[in-house]
Design a protein around this nucleic acid. Sequence first.
DNA 1: CATTATTACGGG
DNA 2: TCCCGTAAT
Length: 710
Amino acid sequence: MEYGEERVVALVDMDCFYVQVEQRLNPALRNTPCVVAQYKTWKGGGIIAVSYEARDHGVTRNMWVDDAKNLCQDLQVARVRELHGKADLTHYREASVEVIEVMSRFAVIERASIDEAYMDLTAAVQQRLKDMSVNRIDPSLLKTTYIQGYPQSSSELEPHTEDLVFDKEEQRSRGLHQWLASLTPSSLGEQSSAGLQLTVGAFIVEEMRAAVEEQTGFRCSAGISHNKVLAKLACGLNKPNRQTILPLASVTELFNSLPIGKIRNLGGKLGSSITETLGVENMGDLTRFSQAQLELHFGDKTGRWLYDLCRGIEFEAVKPRQLPKSIGCSKNFPGKTSLATKEEVQFWLHQLALELEERLTKDRDVNGRVAKSLTVGVRQLGDKRPSSFSRCCALVRYEATKISSDSFAIIKSLNTAGNQQAAWTPPLTLLHISASKFSDAPSSGGITGFLSTETSLSQSRFSTSQLSNKSSLDAKSVSPCKQQHGTIQSFFQKATERPTIQKDGEEEVSVGGKASPAPKSASESHSGAERRSSDVSESPRRHIKSFFQKRSTERSSSMKNSLNIVEKNNSEDCVPVVSPSRTQCENPDNEQATDVELNPNPPSGASEDLLTCDRCSQEVLAWEMPEHNDYHFAMDLQKSFSSSSSSSAATTSCNISSSSSPPPLRGGVTGSAQSSRVKTKIRGQSGPAAKKLRSQGGSASTLDSFFKKN
DNA sequence: CATTATTACGGG
DNA sequence: TCCCGTAAT
């Protein structure tokens, strides 16, 4: 095998995946111009997936439904489900699992996205070649395979026969036969040619794609080549429902007219900077530059990567990973809908947390792992960047109430209006929370063979919701560890099972979760059994439901309005200024919170371990303050759900970063002595041109900051 | 103002 | 390690 042809790599991409998921569900959508859209209020909703019939009409992703209907009057529109006031992609994630599981039967795969997966077929191909002593591959085994570069135009041999009159399928067949014919001669011997290996790989992919369609009903396209970049590129050459082999020998011709931006990772600023800096347009043009030149301009790593890649060579490994490395959710609040009150921020953080808890719990039950880190990010009105700020803290419990209160604690310093104000400034246009840093879940004892045995092999066969429900029930009696968790429903239902607590004659509505209004002895502080909350005949879920029935769609303005209406009596509460020394917010890693979980009985605490709650003046053990605050948070939340009065922030055991002000400006002077590396500099002026991110005037930095690896 | 919601990953 | 920015879908 030659340099750069060591592996057989494939990339499988589901054709307009979300559309197919909806079409499988609703047959009326099949074989029609249709799209999947999110929300509806604004311009009919945003399109995130488009059927090929609709593409023929010019409909594209990121287009508003209202606009798309002008291009295609009879356009069908499937809507993304909405839950907790936000788009919910669960449906597609579950469909993705179905596909991934089928594909995994053929090879180790890397989940590249919800609808894409890479696979290293090198070993599988070798195995097939060994088993089947076949020297010739029948074209009938490659019914949907295209060979890029074939048939080779023989303009010189045959002056001008009818090269263009063939329809697509005929051209495909011709190319395939020509390709197979060119293989047979020399590919027999001990060493199989790279071409034969790709061909066998394509055969495996044909089988796999057939299995995927048979088992799931979904069609896909695929690219087969020697590395990930070429496989990805090849995949897009003959869509939909087709696969393409891209032999290394066909790269030169292909790259000679392939815009640089078509290559994965070069579709953005780096690609633009290459074009500008070198004055070239196509991938093949890069072969005219030495490795040193490319490294000089774009950094060692990127330069080397480009030098090889323009010759069709790349070495990024296919990582064996089927599961996402993080689980998160986010919601935008653009323009006028930006969150401008603390209540709104808390409300939406909690909606996000509800979804996150559900997804994390299912993930733990199905995949046997737990996330240890919680990251919270926001974008502020006016900020052009995708993210204005992000911080993380320990994630110790899969519980929406705690997740949302911790999240709030992390970002509350961003509110320049002050924490005791109802207003939030500057308004937030994006909230994002995500869990990561997974590790094996503590052996969940006897989760009823059902889970432990069946899930790994065919999770998709079972509704995840079923799994969740079942495990919730079983966990209580069977699972020896951890507190009980649950779905939204059980979340609220559980609240009604617990004892009530009085609070100032106000009506009590528990929002579930834990509440520890009074200090408890260290010994019992860890018990999740005696957590208290109030009982309610009318569950808050009712309120939420009615709320979203009326104005569920999108627009936080709905929330904003409902809050404003009753936002008169704002008897602002106190500020959570816990006693000076031991505030649990000073710890950057939130070790405090972790300790609460790991060491329920801290070294005999004296009176110095007592803190006075700012809100209720009760003495609370320092290590219980987080949960105590959860209690307040729950109460506050309840209020906003029912009548919506005011509430104050909850103090939690989260790390609060120092920067309560805009992110520090970066861009130190890098002026490496020599090198004229493209310094994207200057701020402001947009354009994809090579510009330094936010580095300030003059400060230059190398472009090797752009990524890619070898 | 309003291409969303997610995900991964390199650089500093 | 954390946080920021880039890129893709």
